[in-house]
C-alpha cells in the first residue's frame, strides 16, 4: 500500500518536473468546461421571463415603442455575447480577418451559446455573411406555424449576442438581421464593414 503511494508520487513529481523544464508549464484545466451545469429549463425560463419583462411592460406607457424594447433585449444579448466570447476564446489564436472571426462564431461561440454549430455559412467575400441554423435551440419550443412576432421576440437576445460576439473578436458588425420563416430554422445575415 505504502509502496504504491510512494512510487506514484515520484512519477507525478517527475512528470511535473519534466513539464516545467521543457516548454511552458502544462496549461491549467480547460476553463471553458465549467464543472457546474444548470438544467436547460432554468435558462429557458430565465430567457422567457426576461423577454416578458422587457417586451410587455408599460403597455399604457405610449412613449416606449416595441423597437425600444427590442433594443433593451439586444443590449442584454450584447453583453452576454461579448463576455462569452472572451471566455471561449481563451488560449486560442485570435482570428486574423473577418472570415476567420465569423468561422469562430459559427463553431466555438455557437456551441457555447446554442449547443451546436451553425449548419450553413455563406459569404460573398465582401463582408456579407449568412449563417443558417436549421434547429436553433432558442426556438425549439416555438410552434412551426407560430405568429411571426413570437419567434421575433425570442430572437432579439440572440441577435444581440451575435453582435457582442463579433465586437469582442474585433469585427463589430454594421448590421445583423434575422429571418425566421419556419421555426426552428433561422437565418442571420451579418454585414461587416459594409453599409447596412
Amino acid at each position: 500500500m505504502t509502496d504504491t503511494t510512494t512510487t506514484s508520487t515520484t512519477t507525478v513529481a517527475a512528470a511535473a518536473a519534466g513539464g516545467g523544464a521543457a516548454p511552458p508549464p502544462p496549461p491549467p484545466p480547460p476553463a471553458t468546461s465549467s464543472p457546474v451545469q444548470v438544467a436547460e429549463i432554468c435558462l429557458d425560463l430565465l430567457l422567457a421571463e426576461t423577454e416578458r419583462h422587457f417586451m410587455h411592460r408599460d403597455v399604457q406607457n405610449a412613449n416606449t415603442s416595441s423597437s425600444d424594447d427590442a433594443k433593451h433585449l439586444q443590449a442584454i444579448g450584447y453583453r452576454v455575447g461579448y463576455a462569452l466570447v472572451e471566455r471561449c476564446s481563451r488560449g486560442k489564436p485570435r482570428p486574423t480577418d473577418k472570415l476567420d472571426a465569423v468561422k469562430f462564431v459559427c463553431k466555438d461561440f455557437w456551441s457555447a451559446a446554442f449547443g451546436k454549430n451553425v449548419d450553413h455559412l455563406r459569404t460573398n467575400h465582401r463582408g456579407v455573411f449568412v449563417l443558417q441554423d436549421t434547429s436553433f435551440r432558442n426556438l425549439r419550443h416555438v410552434p412551426q406555424h407560430a405568429n411571426n412576432d413570437v419567434a421575433n421576440e425570442r430572437l432579439q437576445i440572440p441577435t444581440g449576442m451575435l453582435q457582442g460576439a463579433l465586437a469582442a473578436l474585433g469585427v463589430p458588425p454594421t448590421s445583423v438581421e434575422v429571418e425566421c420563416n419556419s421555426p426552428p430554422d433561422v437565418t442571420f445575415t451579418v454585414k461587416i464593414g459594409v453599409a447596412p
Binding site: 451545469q37 436547460e40 443590449a75 442584454i76 452576454v80 463576455a83 457555447a112
Partner: peptide, 17 residues
C-alpha cells in the same frame, strides 16, 4: 436525464438581465 447547459451562459445571461 435533464438537458444541461453550461453555467457560464446562464450566469452571464442573468447578470446582463
Amino acid at each position: 436525464a435533464q438537458e444541461k447547459v453550461s453555467n457560464e451562459l446562464f450566469t452571464l445571461t442573468y447578470g446582463a438581465m
